[in-house]
Each structure stands twice: as structure tokens, then as C-alpha cells.
Computed example of a mutant assay.
Amino acid sequence: MRLALVLALIAAPAAAEEVTSAPGGILRWLDKMTGETADIELSRGQAAVSGRLTIQMDECRYPTANPASDGYAHLTITEKGAGTENGTGAAVFSGWMVASSPALSALEHPRYDVWVLRCLTPDQPQLELPPPPAEDEEIIAPQEG
């Protein structure tokens, strides 16, 4: 009986989910030392500086059949280091984060947390952003290439 069940599961075709690329996404940033949080809306290729982190949205995708169900974002996160030239730091995270499962692929950092809330989709309104960022938070224009 078990053998038949295992064979049936192996023989069943894997259902691939069709995804659509979004123009950007919304992330949440947390400074665990101060308790400060911020929601950050980024376009594809755009980066934002929050605290000592530079967070770049490389790609954001969502299920085509159900845009509100989940978002998958590829992020590159670097931290300003004391011993680095020109203020750039080493990458502390580079990979995909899943909105519905933030712990699946999380930023491992003692002070900061960053997670994906959702991708920007045609049926959902964009984030209402607060006034321009403070000195320690700046938006960087998308990089070409």
C-alpha cells in the first residue's frame, strides 16, 4: 500500500506556478536596538539607505493567478563598514525573500531585520510614503545595467 502511494506521488507532475515580474515592492525595515521601523517602497533596481544598511530591490515577482497571495523579492543588502573605502560595505544578504515565509530566507544580522511585505501589483495601491527621508535614510536612484 505504501509503495503504491509513493509511486503515485512520484508519478504526479509537479505544478509550476506562473509568476509575473512586478515594477517594485514594499519592504519593512527594523532596527532592533532602537525599535525604529520603516516601510520602504522600492522600484526594481532602486536602493534605499536605512541605518547602516543599503537595501537594493533587484527583482520582485508574484503569482500571476493570484497577485495578492504572495511576493518573492530578490534583495541585495550591504552594510557600511568601518574599514571600507568609499562608504560601501560587504554584502550581508543576497538572495530571494518570500513575503509569506520571511524566516525561510532571512537576513542574519544582530541589529537589523528586513523582510518583504508584498510586490507592487496593478490591483493594489502603492504605499503612501512619509515626507522625504531623514539624514540617515536616503533613496538612491535605480542603477542602469
Results as ranks from 00 to 15, higher is better:
80 K>W: 05
59 E>D: 14
91 A>W: 02
41 E>Q: 15
36 E>C: 05
24 G>L: 09
128 E>H: 13
65 A>L: 07
22 A>E: 03
103 A>I: 06
18 E>K: 03
32 K>P: 05
131 P>W: 08
6 V>C: 03
103 A>Q: 13
100 S>V: 03
129 L>K: 10
43 S>E: 10
77 I>R: 07
44 R>C: 00
128 E>Q: 14
77 I>W: 12
69 S>W: 04
7 L>A: 07
5 L>K: 10
2 R>T: 13
87 G>M: 07
7 L>M: 14
82 A>I: 09
50 S>V: 14
107 L>R: 10
42 L>S: 02
26 I>E: 12
50 S>R: 13
53 L>Y: 14
15 A>W: 11
71 G>W: 02
114 V>G: 02
25 G>S: 01
17 E>G: 08
90 A>S: 15
129 L>G: 09
50 S>F: 15
124 Q>P: 00
21 S>W: 08
24 G>I: 03
16 A>R: 07
108 E>Q: 12
24 G>M: 06
84 T>M: 10
145 G>I: 03
122 P>F: 02
86 N>Q: 15
10 I>S: 04
63 P>F: 00
44 R>I: 04
110 P>F: 05
29 W>S: 02
38 A>S: 11
133 P>Y: 09
142 P>D: 11
74 H>K: 13
59 E>R: 10
48 A>Y: 01
41 E>W: 06
14 A>M: 08
23 P>S: 09
105 S>L: 08
63 P>V: 00
66 N>H: 08
57 M>L: 15
99 A>V: 01
37 T>P: 01
82 A>K: 13
21 S>G: 10
35 G>N: 09
48 A>N: 06
20 T>G: 00
72 Y>W: 02
120 L>S: 09
99 A>P: 02
137 E>C: 05
81 G>Y: 05
9 L>K: 05
57 M>E: 08
143 Q>E: 12
27 L>Q: 12
65 A>I: 03
47 A>K: 01
103 A>M: 08
73 A>S: 05
140 I>P: 04
141 A>F: 12
41 E>H: 08
136 D>Y: 13
44 R>N: 06
39 D>P: 00
62 Y>T: 00
67 P>T: 00
116 V>R: 04
76 T>D: 03
101 S>A: 14
14 A>P: 00
129 L>T: 11
77 I>S: 03
76 T>N: 07
43 S>M: 11
96 W>E: 11
125 P>Y: 11
4 A>N: 10
107 L>W: 13
83 G>H: 13
11 A>W: 13
142 P>Y: 09
89 G>P: 01
111 R>F: 08
96 W>F: 07
120 L>H: 07
125 P>S: 10
85 E>W: 15
121 T>E: 02
15 A>F: 14
6 V>S: 09
64 T>R: 05
33 M>Y: 15
137 E>G: 03
28 R>E: 15
119 C>D: 00
111 R>Y: 06
3 L>W: 07
5 L>Y: 03
22 A>R: 02
35 G>R: 10
66 N>Q: 11
112 Y>P: 06
116 V>H: 12
57 M>D: 05
41 E>C: 04
113 D>H: 12
